[in-house]
Amino acid sequence: MHLTTPRAILFDLDGTLADTAPDLTGAMNRLRVARGLPPTPYETLRPVASAGARGLIGAAFGLQPGDEEYEELRVAFLDNYASALAQDSQLFDGVPALLESLRGLGLAWGIVTNKAARFTDPLVPLIGLQQAGCVVSGDTTPHAKPHPAPLLEAASRLGMRPGDCWYVGDDLRDIQAGQAAGMATIAAAWGYCGDAPPVTWNADAVADSPMQLIELIRRLSS
């Protein structure tokens, strides 16, 4: 898709707007310690933080959905996380300036995350994102990303056509969801990004920092 001037920017949350890995990995390592295991190094867990419980349990315990004990670990991990959502989570450097720039340009913005509303709803105001025009969580629609349904719901809530929106995310499934929704896609290379380099995701653009994203939007809006 050729990039055109957006009317709205939709963002993933974990690893795109906010560095939530410290609290996510902390919840996982409290689970390991409670089971008599040493903490998993932060450097091992951080890249998979955008994949939530599935990615973190895979990295910390070597288990995947369907494996014995996986569901028990998932429930315990989420309970740990719910008890300490925003002790160390914060917006990435440059994100407040990015959001202020969008306001100055008259562009709407919103959040589309696979994080369940149980966590999203209290977390968003705690880390300073309460001005979002919409917040769509992983359980807001019947499908989570990479299905396009959450992104289409967000566009609808903002009163926008999908083609007038950009979707910005730090995971391949974000780009897949944006493409399926008919939106322009931007890979947030400042985020966690998993195993595959963002340049391989076939996004419409790759931004190495929030400032680069600001510059890209300004060029198209001028």
Rank of each mutant, 00 (worst) to 15 (best):
W109F: 04
W109D: 00
W109T: 00
G110Y: 03
G110D: 06
I111C: 02
V112L: 07
T113I: 15
T113W: 15
N114L: 11
K115A: 09
K115G: 10
A117Y: 11
T120M: 12
D121S: 10
P122N: 08
V124P: 10
P125C: 13
I127E: 01
G128K: 14
L129I: 14
C134G: 04
C134Q: 08
V136C: 07
V136P: 00
V136D: 08
S137H: 12
G138N: 15
G138R: 11
G138K: 10
T140F: 04
T141V: 01
H143P: 12
A144R: 11
K145G: 11
P146Q: 03
H147D: 15
H147V: 08
H147M: 04
P148H: 05
P150S: 15
L152S: 05
E153T: 08
A154H: 09
A155W: 00
A155V: 01
S156M: 05
R157W: 07
R157L: 08
L158M: 08
G159V: 12
M160G: 03
P162H: 11
G163K: 04
D164H: 10
Y167C: 02
V168H: 09
D170I: 05
D170Y: 05
D170G: 01
D171C: 01
R173M: 10
D174I: 11
D174R: 08
I175C: 10
Q176R: 14
A177S: 15
A177V: 09
G178T: 01
Q179D: 15
A180F: 12
A180T: 13
A181E: 05
G182V: 14
A187C: 06
A187D: 00
A188K: 04
A189V: 00
G191R: 12
G194C: 07
G194V: 00
P197Q: 01
V199P: 01
N202W: 06
N202M: 13
A203V: 00
D204P: 15
D204R: 03
A205L: 03
A205G: 06
V206Y: 06
S209G: 13
M211Q: 08
